[in-house]
Amino acid sequence: MEPVIINRGDSPLVLGLPHTGSHVPEDIFSKLNDEGRLLRDTDWHIDKLYDGLIDGATTVRATFHRYVIDANRDPSGQSLYPGQTTTGLVPLTTFDNMPIWREGEEPDEAEISRRAEHFHAPYHRALEAELERVKAIHGYAVLYDCHSIRSVIPWLFDGILPDFNIGTDEGRTCDPLIEEAAYSATKATGRTHVLNGRFRGGWTTRHYGRPDKGFHAVQMELAQSSHLASEVPPFDLDGEKADRLRRQLADILTGIMRAAADAAGRANRH
């Protein structure tokens, strides 16, 4: 299986989908323990939630599971959140700090480097190429990085996660107009929401978000309670919840893209 699937559109919007993949090559799957084989920390059904929400969007989706290698981590292995608990480039545990590898089967540095070459790098080459492509057409590009996570994970955060978690690395990864549009549209849903809370943007958002160069990036982390029937196996999608959420996500994306056009127009005037 190819590590990345690309569906090209003609708008400035690129949707990044680094964690919806569930493919684990057999040689790696055989080293996972029973907990690891549940693939518990998948961004379940996120590709379905965003499918067809806004005309012209490009999607770049990793097919491999984050337990193979996490496409939203710094390939150097540096932590996204120094001083806070988190999982690494190749996770050793679930988000509940439960081991996922059979004893003695944890990947070593050579194996991590191999996975980075065969999975992480192709995903980011594709993502970068699509951002460059749409920027060449429009003069700017917007990366909206699509994520989800269980709403209660004490090892990572206290209490219940808001439904919408917007990340712009404290405003560094996009124009202020885009950040304000994302926040305003999210607030208008009436759901719980936060800007730059526990999830303020992963490596992808921070790496590609260069508003001074015309590349804008926003991460959206959805609490899985907003669209799953249950946050335990089999992690089924709740159709009614999903339909409501899709309408709200379409409004959020529309607001972001209007703001991006306004920001580009303002930049051109100057």
Rank of each mutant, 00 (worst) to 15 (best):
E117W: 12
F119V: 15
H120P: 15
A121R: 09
A121I: 13
P122I: 06
P122Y: 09
P122C: 10
Y123L: 07
Y123V: 09
L127P: 15
E128Q: 14
E128N: 14
A129V: 12
A129E: 14
E130L: 13
L131M: 08
E132C: 11
R133E: 12
R133M: 13
V134Y: 06
I137S: 13
I137R: 14
H138G: 15
Y140D: 05
L143A: 00
Y144T: 05
C146T: 07
C146E: 10
H147T: 11
H147R: 14
I149G: 04
V152G: 08
I153W: 10
W155H: 13
W155R: 11
D158N: 07
G159K: 02
L161Y: 02
D163L: 11
D163N: 11
F164N: 05
I166S: 02
G167K: 01
T168I: 03
T168G: 03
T168C: 06
D169L: 04
E170P: 05
R172T: 08
C174A: 15
C174I: 03
D175A: 09
I178R: 01
I178C: 01
E179A: 07
A182F: 02
A182N: 05
Y183T: 07
Y183V: 15
T186G: 03
K187Y: 10
K187P: 12
A188E: 10
A188T: 10
A188I: 12
T189C: 08
G190Q: 05
R191D: 09
L195F: 00
L195N: 03
G197R: 03
G197W: 10
F199D: 01
F199T: 09
R200P: 08
R200S: 15
R200T: 07
G201W: 01
G201V: 00
T204P: 00
T205H: 01
R206C: 03
Y208A: 03
Y208K: 06
G209V: 00
G209Q: 04
P211W: 00
P211N: 11
P211D: 02
D212V: 04
G214M: 08
G214W: 03
G214T: 07
F215T: 03
F215H: 06
A217V: 00
Q219M: 10
Q219C: 09
E221R: 07
L222A: 04
A223G: 15
Q224D: 10
S225L: 12
S225Y: 08
S226F: 03
H227E: 10
L228C: 09
L228E: 10
